[in-house]
Computed example of a mutant assay.
Amino acid sequence: MILVFGKSGQVSRELARQADVTALGREDCDLMQPGAAAQAIAEHAPSVVINASAYTAVDRAETETEAALRLNAQAPGEMARACATRGLPFLHISTDYVFDGSGTAPWTETDPVAPKNAYGQTKLEGEQAVRDSGAQALILRTSWVFSAHGTNFVKTMLRLSETRDHLSIVGDQVGGPTPAADIAATLLTCARAMQEGQPGGTYHYAGQPAVSWAGFAREIFCQAGKTTVVEDIPTTAYPTPAQRPLNSRLDCAKLATDFSVNQPAWQDSLSRVLRESGA
């Protein structure tokens, strides 16, 4: 049995659609409570544990640091240690925000980390807690997640296009939009391989080709048949409490080599998401 922490998130919902999993929401396991994750693992006795839960409110994390630290670092550490004790594979989702966003080259797994905001820092501390646990653990860094449910850029753009004929969108932040369904499929592929003895490690997984937020918006409107015009603006023209990385490109070659998982073409997945959204 696969135990999934997280129930309402984008990846959690896709995991439940693709496999027979037991998904735990806050009502089932309050990760803000120390020891709750370990207790859930003991009670459910799974064969694999996937952590698809996180504190993802990037701007609020600048002030709600204790909650972000609890959910993004301390709770995953508890999960991983519980898995290490029981000899269970543990898979954990992380983010490109552990990097500083400089340059234009895709980030590799061995590049130096230097998060620029509280969210990225708590996710980095979560990675370290998982590594320190001694578990057979896989950390999957991803970026710009989208699906037909939850809160994400695609849904926001569709909503805004209903009332706006012109939008100013950041054009100097570049990354790989990543379908939640593909992240879920990748986690399940890796989980099966780990059950057969494949070691874990840190891996990158993101959609291709790289695109700016403005370019992503244009493709959303094009595929959805919207007439909303997109104007590129620099990050400096759209200040936010948390600093965003300019370069979110991820080098995903290692995942392809070790698990035969290739990067998804996000435009194709966008078409499926738009159909599911009724756009």
Score class of each variant (00 low, 15 high):
R141N: 14
G175W: 09
E127C: 08
R218Q: 14
P241L: 08
D258H: 09
E14R: 13
Y205N: 00
P112Q: 09
V130C: 09
C83T: 01
T240H: 12
Q208G: 07
A184R: 10
M32A: 15
K7G: 04
A279W: 13
P199Y: 14
T236N: 05
R218P: 02
V154G: 12
Y97F: 15
S47H: 14
S260C: 07
V4E: 03
Y238N: 14
A148E: 15
Q223K: 15
D232A: 00
A105T: 15
G200H: 05
A206T: 07
Q263N: 07
L3V: 06
A148T: 00
G87D: 15
R244S: 09
K7D: 03
G6I: 15
N117Y: 00
S277G: 02
H166P: 00
V58E: 10
S147F: 09
L140V: 15
A191V: 05
A84M: 07
R141I: 06
I50D: 10
H149F: 10
A54W: 12
L15H: 03
S102P: 00
I139G: 11
E231W: 02
G134A: 11
R81W: 04
E78Q: 00
M194I: 06
A37T: 03
Y55R: 09
G207Y: 13
S102L: 10
W107V: 03
S277T: 14
A129N: 11
F90V: 00
G215C: 12
E109W: 08
Q39I: 02
S102Q: 13
S161I: 00
E66N: 11
F5R: 04
A253E: 13
R275F: 08
G201Y: 12
V229Q: 14
S161D: 02
Q33L: 14
K116Y: 00
F90M: 01
T202L: 15
E196L: 08
A68D: 05
L255T: 10
Q267S: 06
G126P: 06
W213M: 14
S168I: 04
V174C: 12
T22A: 14
T65W: 12
P209G: 08
E127V: 05
G215K: 12
F259G: 05
A40E: 08
A217R: 14
F90A: 10
Q33K: 15
V4F: 00
A57N: 11
K155F: 02
R272M: 07
G101C: 11
A61L: 05
A82N: 15
S147M: 08
L160C: 00
V113I: 08
D182Q: 06
A137Q: 05
I50S: 11
R159H: 12
A242T: 09
T142Q: 02
V273R: 01
P245V: 04
L24N: 03
I233K: 07
A206Q: 13
